[in-house]
Design a protein around this nucleic acid. Structure first.
Lengths: 139, 139
DNA sequence: CTAGAATCTACAGCCACCAGAGGTTCAAGA
DNA sequence: TCTTGAACCTCTGGTGGCTGTAGATTCTAG
């Protein structure tokens, strides 16, 4: 009987109730049954599943990537290679993002350092933003 | 007479026409007039203004930040301090993002390295995603 | 039994655009 | 001058990943 209510589930995974319903809508996590009055009821394993999703999201995995990973979780006899590939491709993306942000940081630092502390008319922040050629480079 | 058509303007700033119209809708850039048939006509300065917006966007500034910066551009007798503050606060955000991504990269690298190349049932990728406690830490 | 907390559905909104439909206007060549 | 087709117009809807609201219903503790 019974099962876990959506609010409890959400709380256990530090998630909003709305988000859990959203995950159901897009097919990630479904309640195993409904109460007579229509309330969603979850299994204890769903806590783990929801935590999995939330954790992957925090790590920046997209919903489609998570959907793939969940399919792997659902049939644990499949090869690990698929999960590995997803993680690897994600790692690449993260490394690219870091590099872009570093280039950006460099430029922002220059902007802030060059600020004349005078009027906007001679402010480097505005000037640099106005003209791409002021950039160090490649973004 | 005439002025620059929206397609030309967009092309000069490497922007989509739709995006220029969107910027008008949210009050960033407006055509100085319309042709008899209703086509938008822009001043040459608008090229610079649009480039400014695009460049700031590339640097990760949000629309509201850009709106503030544009207000400064529009009255160049104001103090540079405001523009400097926006850039500084943005720099902080960027630095935080870089740190988070680095922590993430660390974890992803560990995931990939630990992959058993066997079955999902003993795959670290899945295991780590399932349990936050496997993380190095603080994200 | 009752009060109020939790849940339900359905819909709207967020950001920063992008795409498409279906219709009109413009500009260059014949 | 006329024609053609590229460019433009407005309007609507979609993206991702949720979040928030409204109004109705259900659950649970006292």
């Amino acid at each position: 009987m019974s099962g876990i209510a959506i609010g409890k589930l959400a709380g256990l995974a530090a998630t909003k109730v709305q988000t859990v319903r959203y995950y159901e809508e897009i097919g990630l996590i479904a309640p195993f049954m409904r109460s007579e009055g229509g309330h969603r009821l979850y299994n204890p394993e769903d806590v783990r599943r929801l935590k999995f999703v939330r954790h992957a999201r925090e790590l920046g995995f997209g919903i489609e990537e998570i959907r793939e990973l969940l399919q792997l979780v659902d049939k644990p006899e499949t090869s690990c290679a698929a999960a590995d590939a997803i993680a690897r491709s994600h790692l690449e993306q993260v490394e690219i993002r870091i590099e872009k942000l570093k280039a950006l940081r460099k430029e922002l630092r220059r902007m802030v350092e060059d600020c004349s502390h005078g009027h906007v008319s001679e402010c480097r922040v505005i000037e640099i933003l106005s003209d791409h050629r002021h950039c160090g480079g490649e973004h």
